[in-house]
Design a protein around this nucleic acid. Structure first.
Lengths: 243, 243
DNA sequence: CGACAACTTGACGGGCGTCAACCGGAGTGG
DNA sequence: CCACTCCGGTTGACGCCCGTCAAGTTGTCG
């Protein structure tokens, strides 16, 4: 659909390159995939729990979150997403969406037919492997989140979420470890860590007082990465960044 | 390696059949796979965090759990496994184990070379799809667990874990909804729900008093499935049982 | 019958939730 | 240019759910 030097889905391609070896032919096929590109406002629901999507969603710009809600109405964010991420690759092989996805900033996404992506995955095994690997890393991150909300206190939980976010952004070339722009409200941070916004607020103040970071609204500056990492009990192994 | 009417890895094959369409040829190749079968005692570590396994582990008999540990020493069980489950399919495409797996009862497992399984996945796309689908369902369960430990209270968490366990056992033909044999200590239930064993004990008593279930050591009888399901806020959709 | 793991129960405390009030910045409309 | 609104952040008071500590009981396997 486009054949520029920099294809529209470039962030996704760069991510897939990190996930596995891609040959020239693989890259050509990926660049030739049919896309429906869309700009969406903040808080737009991209996938709704219960839907049976016929396409997958690539995040090209901005940030997104996946969440579930309990019958009490409580929300739980189960993952955060940055440009290059595939937001719902599980729909390649699962019918019904078991959770929702929404943009947490204004964002640019590309929709791809799940049939076409599936065909590509089996026609070009390198692509299939990269996609599968991506699913597996997603799952690894979910496991770490179970540990995070299950067994860490508020300070560690929030610090851990920040560490993960920074490292993943860095890996995609989206900013530095020292200067972090977190596109989330304190309520959303709470939803991601199993806390209330009130307690998030108090805990951020504590992290500030500890000298681990400095806040100015949504702008965080990590003052002492190593201290933050220790507070967070953060070990990046579960991100499986090294191939 | 074996060609009986009932191959040794029958539980796994039955599960894969539920995950996707398998042709006669697929079944033949699956049954011909090279296995290393092993009986292991309770609490045997099958995979250790940090390992770089060269094989995958099928659970044929007994029960297993996957867990991570925080630097504080706190354990978090991230999933429970029943016969037919593949315990570490993520190692097909990921090198380093990001968590540990252990038998929680005496168990029988079969080890398969990850290279051989990978070749099979690409040679027989039906098998590949079934395996990939299995990974995706695993991930869906992790997401539900994040919600469970993040946003539900102790009673719901434990009830939810019980509901999931029952439904999955039922789907594998391993027992009924009314009579549940839970192969876990209260400490392990706590590790799976982000609680302490003391609080698990108190909460089980509450569930008992509510009339949702009756306990006799590890034997649970669900007295009122619908009440338990309501307490648990349990909706089996995330298990993606229907193909 | 001794050793040990697991379960049980009570007393106490703290981390986090709840409720509520107030503040501050960004729109928006008159 | 100034209300007015709304969302999000901030702070305090208070209470509860669940953790901690500790002692005692039960069941199991030598």
């Amino acid at each position: 659909m486009q054949s520029d030097d920099e294809p529209i889905i470039d962030p996704v391609i760069r991510k897939l390159k990190r996930l596995g070896q891609l040959a020239t032919k693989d890259l050509a096929e990926l660049s030739a995939i049919t896309l429906h590109v869309e700009n969406v406002p903040r808080l737009r629901q991209l996938i709704r729990e219960g839907d049976t999507p016929e396409r997958c969603c690539f995040l090209l710009r901005g940030f997104a979150a996946r969440h579930k809600v309990a019958s009490s109405g409580a929300r739980q964010v189960v993952s955060l997403h940055i440009p290059g991420d595939i937001l719902d690759i599980q729909h390649l092989l699962l019918g019904r969406a078991d959770h929702s996805v929404e943009a947490i900033t204004p964002a640019r996404v590309a929709w791809v037919s799940k049939g076409e992506l599936q065909r590509l995955a089996w026609k070009r095994p390198n692509i299939g492997k990269a996609l599968w690997r991506d699913c597996l890393i997603d799952a690894s991150i979910f496991r770490e989140w179970v540990l995070n909300v299950g067994r860490r206190d508020a300070k560690s939980r929030i610090a851990h979420m920040l560490c993960e976010f920074v490292i993943r952004c860095e890996a995609m070339g989206l900013g530095s470890r020292e200067h972090l722009e977190l596109p989330m409200t304190q309520t959303q941070i709470g939803d991601a860590t199993g806390l209330t916004s009130v307690h998030v607020n108090r805990t951020l103040k504590l992290l500030d007082e500890d000298g681990a970071l400095v806040r100015d609204r949504n702008h965080f500056t990590v003052m002492d990465w190593d201290r933050l990492r220790k507070i967070a009990d953060f070990d990046p192994g579960y991100l499986h960044e090294a191939a």
